[in-house]
Amino acid sequence: MSLAAPLKKEKKKLIKPKQIEVQKIMKPVKDIKKLQATIEVQDLSVSFIQYTKGLQQKDLKVISSLNIDIHPGEILAVVGSSGSGKSLLAHAILGILPSNATVTGKITYKGEPLTSKRQEKLRGKEIALVPQSVNYLDPLMRVGKQVRTAVKDGDPIKAQREVFSRYYLKPEVENLFPFQLSGGMARRVLVSTAVVSGAQLIIADEPTPGLDTASVKEALKCFRELADHGAAVMLISHDIETALKIADRIAVFYAGTTVEVAPVEDFKGKGEGLRHPYSKALWGALPQNDFMPIAGFQPLPSALPPGCLFEPRCSMVTPDCSKAQPEARTLRNGMVRCIHAT
């Protein structure tokens, strides 16, 4: 909240995303910052109605005061363990949460509030989801045809062929059925569908698990190209390594909130550049680093600690930590929610 407010005035004067030229710059982070954010999430909370015993009802807060923003041409990787609320954030943006969920906070898309009506209108057109697996394709329809149905304007066949050649899919592929595709090909087909729809915001939900190294590379390249053509990409993953390969910034999620947003360059060495103790622990636990776990577990939404959500597991803990959830603050070109971070 406090982070986003001062930036906002500045953004209003700036150019509209439409005017962006297709750029082939790999990581134009600095230019990006000046543009209006494609999507901006402020103070988002999502809670579910749950029943404890018998008829007693409780509101389970699974996402609490979460902030992120993604600019055109940028890839933001959302990293965190399962149950940290990554997928729910995607569902909240797309407006596909189950009926027992309550949402508060503010989501703006291109500067205007994203209401449920607008979500419905934009979903699949300007905001596209790249799902996890081929199971989301129609098993009985040739993939070329499926991609064509997503084309918004212009010649669908031409658009589909172009996008296939861009993603190194041979012309024969359009006549195949989903079950005939390899994992990497399927992923490229899924990305193609998002591309031809002309989406401005692409949300990729765990696009890589189960793929071998070569296919992961292929899939990630697709996303980089999308971003370079002016789209904003949100890459959801539990795997930092994947995120590091292509993202511009990384948002680290823990127990339903963003504990840190850091430029990708900070993830290196022993993690000295990182701001939050959780990100440091996550980085240190990688098999290629120290492979050292920290004790404990991510708190369940039904038993969140009163203060900082990471307090029970934190090595830097002081009595002040349990007083209140730390405000998000800007620190060294990133964001952190920790009173000790320097």
Partner: peptide
Amino acid sequence: DEMTTMLDAITQAQIWH
């Protein structure tokens, strides 16, 4: 069989230890 592929690094390290 890919026992910790779907898990975050900390949980992965925890379980393997």
